[in-house]
Design a protein around this nucleic acid. Structure first.
Length: 197
DNA sequence: GTTCTAGAAC
DNA sequence: GTTCTAGAAC
């Protein structure tokens, strides 16, 4: 009852620990989810992995998103990147990308570490696909360089984010533009098979 | 973030 | 008739 009344304003939704957007905060406290942990960060497995391997690196410090990151967090971002690199090195037979979503929907800064097979039943929508394969995905190395050279991360407008998410489907490994998600999902399997041969 | 499902697309 | 996408969720 109380929660319902409070959730009428957007600000109280942000603070509501029972709201779905607080899901990562819950996962960070769940031993079942935790892959690795040190004094500054926690690594968890994505609850709905969009590829064969999909981890999230989160700082323990309460940073809500990439857009709250300033120069004073340079070392933290480098540390998160190094942790990600360590995870990637364990799977020498898989390619990975490491980065942030330009418009994240979950609370707490989180670095995606995801294999580029994108072979997962949880990957269902154009939004999912474009969030990893268009400039909506901010590569960690670019973000860190920008923070170092410019002192801040160049904001991607909500309008631009929506453009990226609505981009026509395109294979990340070739020029094919499949007509829909099922066609794309069938197609990317052919790239995986080629690697194995 | 996901789930559900109406109705568009085929 | 079936597949697929897109928008609401109190």
């Amino acid at each position: 009852m109380k929660r319902k009344a409070e959730s009428n304003t957007s600000k109280s939704v942000d603070l509501d620990k029972s709201h779905w957007s607080a899901g990562l905060l819950k996962s960070m406290k769940d031993p079942e989810c935790i892959v690795k942990e040190d004094d500054k960060i926690i690594v968890i497995k994505d609850k709905y992995p969009k590829a064969q391997f999909h981890y999230l690196v989160l700082p323990k410090e309460d940073i809500s998103s990439i857009w709250q990151v300033k120069r004073n967090h340079q070392d933290l971002l480098m540390h998160m990147h190094n942790i990600a690199r360590d995870l990637v090195e364990k799977q020498t037979d898989h390619e990975f990308i490491i980065g942030y979503h330009a418009m994240p929907s979950m609370q707490r800064l989180h670095l995606h570490v995801i294999s580029t097979d994108f072979n997962s039943p949880c990957l269902k929508t154009k939004y999912h696909w474009n969030s990893f394969t268009t400039p909506f995905f901010l590569h960690s190395s670019d973000v860190s360089r920008q923070l170092h050279e410019e002192g801040e991360i160049k904001k991607v407008s909500p309008e631009r984010c929506k453009e990226y998410l609505n981009t026509q489907l395109k294979c990340h490994k070739c020029t094919l533009q499949p007509k829909n998600m099922p066609a794309l999902k069938r197609h990317i399997l052919t790239h995986i098979d080629k690697q194995k041969q």
